[in-house]
Every structure is written in C-alpha cells, then in structure tokens.
C-alpha cells in the first residue's frame, strides 16, 4: 500500500451561484482512522463527500483519494472509494446476493473472486442466512447493513458514510455504529459525516467541524476541546453564599474565574484540577444548604458554541434517543 494520507483536500471550493457550499476547505484523512465531518444541515458535508466521490465538480482547489486527483482520474479515484449513500441504494426486488453481484461487477471485482467476497461480507454484516432473500423482505437495519456491505465489495481504501443514521430507530443506529467501529478495528479507513455530536465523539479519531461551508477546526476531541480553553465550569446553586466565597476561591490553584450571581455561583477551573472537594467542604461547614452542583466538562458542543456562537443541538432536527457510547458492550 502507498504511503501518505488516504484523503487530501486542499482549499476546496464549490459554489452554486453566489452560495459557497464548500468554502476553502482543507483536511487530510490518515490510513486506518475514522475521520468525522461534524456540522449542522447545510454545512457543506454532503457537497464535500460529493466532490470526493466524483459526483460534484469542484469550483477550485484539489481533492485527492489514495493520491489520485478526483478531477484528473475520476475512474481511478472511484475504484478506490466505497460510497454508502444515506438512502438504501439497492434494487428492492432482487436478492441481497444478486444486488451484491451487480454492484461487485460495477466496481470491477474480478468474477472469480466475487462470489467468495460476497459470502465473506454477508458474514461480516451477519446476513449470510438471508443471501437469497429479496431486499424488500428485509428490516430497515438489515437493508442498511447490506447497503454498507455493497460499499466494501471492492476492498476500497476508504469508506464514505454520509449521515448513515439520520431518521432511523435507535437499535438500527446502534448496530450501524458498532459495525463501523468493527470495520475500522479491522483496518478500514472511514470518512463519516454527521450532525450528531455524540456520534462524532463516540466514533471518530479526528473530527473536522464545519459550518456554512467552512472548516472551522480539525483535530482529535482533546485537541478541539483545548481550543475552548480546556476549562470546566462548576455551577453551584445554594442559599446563603456571599462574596467571601469568591475571595476564598480566586487565589486557589486551577481557578481562573469565580462569580456570584443571584443564588448561584459559577467557577471556571482547569479541567482535572481538584477544586470541587474543598469547595463542597467549605460550603457544608459554613452551614449553607446546597440545592445542586453542576460540573460542565468541555465537549464538542462547547467547542461548536465557541467557534460559531450557536448551538449545534438547536440545529439538529432531533437529538439521538440514547447515548451511543452506551452501545458498546
């Protein structure tokens, strides 16, 4: 296998008239990682993947897949990528196997190798027993697994998944996230787009945050959270707190700011510092009755808020019904 990043995007621009759907975006995806494009609807994620899968002609900039410029050698680039559309892009009246035979041939898989490869992948997506059943007899989750398997037939160097969990039930969503994680454990490079923070956090090694066509930041989760100052915020609601509390807090190690409001106290602290135990002890010993203590550890939501001044959650049509991190056995 060749050295270097699997995907290299440099200064990519795609304009639709006045609108820059993708505006000078740059990022690289290394072999073996799951790279996430995180951003609200209209951020330009699909357009970016569209350029990389040769569906969208870029206005300027360059995009390379496995070292191949997508605008120069589109066929060469396409033979090295696996694309999983958000929709079930399969022929519903044909069997899973017949679908995979067709797509394998379209991807140029050698005829001698094809049958074995199909069996292997059906095993991976746990549908070996249903190979000869028509797609339209499958449950939603099974269809999605075949949909992903089709993208893997030709052993692509990278798999593109564009918001594969939008509008599906929690159980199916969990099985897809697990499948992607398993495939990645076996060495598959993945480019994954989502507007769900939790998915990006759970799945991705590195994340690019996009909004309004621009790439605002790229990095691992901790690199990104470091951007917002890497501070946690402790909020205490209690009766009878006074200014002496603030005076006591401010010189403490790890405390960058403390402020007393109307019945609540906010303390900004360096993440990992040990301010909370002495604070609680002082409050209880002074006889204050505590209503609640919140510790806000920095997360991608905070990062997004910091970068764009708006909340990603408000943009998301509906937050996922369960914490995907809990999906891991």
């Amino acid at each position: 296998m060749r050295e270097g990043p699997v995907i290299e995007v440099k200064n990519l621009v795609k304009r639709y008239g006045e609108l820059a759907a993708v505006d000078a975006v740059s990022f690289e995806v290394e072999r073996g990682e799951i790279f996430g494009l995180l951003g609200p609807n209209g951020a330009g994620k699909t357009t970016t993947i569209g350029v990389l899968s040769c569906l969208v002609k870029p206005t300027s900039g360059s995009a390379k897949v496995a070292g191949i410029d997508v605008t120069r050698d589109s066929l060469g680039a396409r033979s090295r990528i696996g694309v999983v559309p958000q929709e079930i892009a399969l022929y519903p009246t044909l069997s899973a196997r017949d679908n995979m035979l067709f797509w394998g041939r379209m991807y140029g898989v050698a005829e001698a190798e094809l049958a074995g490869r199909i069996d292997e992948l059906l095993e991976v997506v746990q549908l070996a027993g249903r190979a000869r059943d028509r797609i339209d007899t499958f449950s939603g989750g099974m269809k999605r697994r075949v949909n992903i398997a089709v993208g893997l037939l030709h052993r692509p160097e990278v798999l593109f998944l564009d918001e594969p969990t939008v509008g599906i039930d929690p159980q199916t969503r969990r099985s897809i996230l697990e499948l992607v994680k398993d495939l990645n454990d076996q060495g598959l490079t993945v480019l994954y787009t989502t507007h769900y923070l939790e998915e990006a956090e759970f799945l991705c090694d590195r994340i690019g945050i996009m909004d309004e066509g621009r790439m605002l930041a790229v990095g691992t989760k901790s690199e990104l959270t470091a951007l917002v100052g890497a501070e946690s915020v402790i909020t205490v609601r209690a009766d009878g707190m006074d200014a002496s509390l603030v005076n006591w807090l401010e010189p403490l190690e790890g405390v960058s700011d403390a402020a007393l409001g109307d019945g609540d106290l906010t303390v900004s602290v360096t993440t990992g510092s040990n301010v909370l135990p002495p604070l609680v002890e002082r409050l209880t010993s002074s006889g204050t009755s505590i209503h609640s203590i919140d510790v806000d550890v920095p997360n991608l939501e905070g990062v997004f808020l910091h970068l764009t001044g708006k909340s990603l959650r408000d943009e998301a049509d509906e937050a996922p019904a369960e914490d995907p991190a809990g999906a891991k056995p």
């Binding site: 569906l55 066929l75 396409r78 033979s79 559309p85 958000q86 022929y91 379209m106």
Partner: peptide, 10 residues
C-alpha cells in the same frame, strides 16, 4: 439513489 451510487462506481 442507485443511479447516484452507479455514478460513484468506476
């Protein structure tokens, strides 16, 4: 989107 998928294949 099968046609779109076909356009992403070689």
């Amino acid at each position: 989107k099968t046609l779109m998928r076909l356009f992403t294949a070689p």
